[in-house]
């Protein structure tokens, strides 16, 4: 369980996060969405204990991540958007680093590397950025951590690898893990992230499951413009429109349309999804 309570963080005088409060529950893959510079990476680094909170608290299983206690670090894996190559073969690197995570499985690492069609005997310094990212993703999942924080994990992956990534996440993440994935590429993760967290400048606009979203918002894929749509976008052969779901109809959530609808109707969405 992750509890964030009145979290605030600033870079000097520039306030990035303010009064952020939420609870993240086990067994869920959270999609962390937001425009550039709203603090997605900052929030992930705060969760990982790489930064100290300005105000408020973060508790992961009751522990402050900034204390960087080994007993908590063993349960966490943070994958930054850019990863560094180590001057050795991927197998050697994984073997020497894996000893620190009690749940690490070399077989699992090699299995995921095979699924990604990446050669584990290749030197990491000779890998492309996509291969390097896949090596790190394989390692992160092979560590079997309870908390995985991924920053833009699909950046640098080719199209087949993005599909492979979705399958791998679903197949290899343990049932009680909390996964937080920050991304701009919502289509890459459309079928795996649930709940959705949308960050705006200094606040959380939305933190809801897909079920709750589809209960409160209706995604219309027809070709007639709806007068009360919160957001509409022309697609080949019709429109994608987001309206308030007043009739209880079911629809497939389009995350990109949701993101735009939330940004155009911030106050309305906050009220609509308010749990108070």
């Amino acid at each position: 369980m992750i509890s964030i309570d009145n979290l605030a963080f600033s870079y000097g005088p520039k306030e990035v996060l303010k009064n952020i409060s939420m609870n993240l529950e086990p067994g869920k893959i959270y999609g962390l969405l937001g425009e550039n510079g709203v603090g997605k990476t900052t929030l992930l680094t705060l969760l990982s204990g790489l930064k100290k909170t300005g105000a408020g608290t973060i508790r992961i299983d009751g522990h402050d991540p900034y204390k960087r206690e080994p007993s908590l670090l063993e349960k966490i894996y943070y994958l930054p958007d850019e990863v560094a190559p180590s001057p050795e073969r991927a197998t050697r690197w994984a073997k020497s680093k894996g000893v620190f995570w009690p749940g690490f499985s070399m077989d699992k690492f090699l299995g995921i590397m095979a699924e990604f069609e990446t050669d584990p005997s290749q030197k990491m310094t000779t890998m492309s950025s996509g291969q390097l990212k896949k090596t790190y993703i394989s390692f992160a999942l092979a560590c079997n951590p309870e908390f995985i924080f991924m920053d833009e994990p699909t950046n640098g992956l080719d199209i087949p690898s993005k599909a492979q990534f979705r399958q791998t996440i679903l197949r290899h993440t343990s049932m009680d893990a909390i996964l937080v994935i920050s991304t701009h590429q919502v289509r890459d993760l459309e079928n795996i992230i649930d709940p959705i967290i949308i960050l705006d400048k200094r606040e959380v606009l939305l933190n809801a499951s897909l079920e709750e979203i589809s209960q409160k918002l209706y995604f219309d894929y027809g070709n007639v413009i709806l007068p009360d749509s919160l957001y509409s976008e022309q697609l080949p052969g019709g429109f994608i429109q987001v309206v308030r779901n007043t009739s209880g109809q079911e629809s497939k959530v389009n995350i990109e349309a949701l993101f735009n609808a939330v940004h155009k109707n911030k106050e309305l969405v906050k009220t609509l999804f308010s749990h108070e």
């Binding site: 680094t45 990982s48 790489l50 080994p70 007993s71 930054p80």
Partner: peptide, 8 residues
């Protein structure tokens, strides 16, 4: 960041 996250 990778080094800081090593469980030691």
């Amino acid at each position: 960041s990778s080094w800081l996250m090593i469980p030691a």
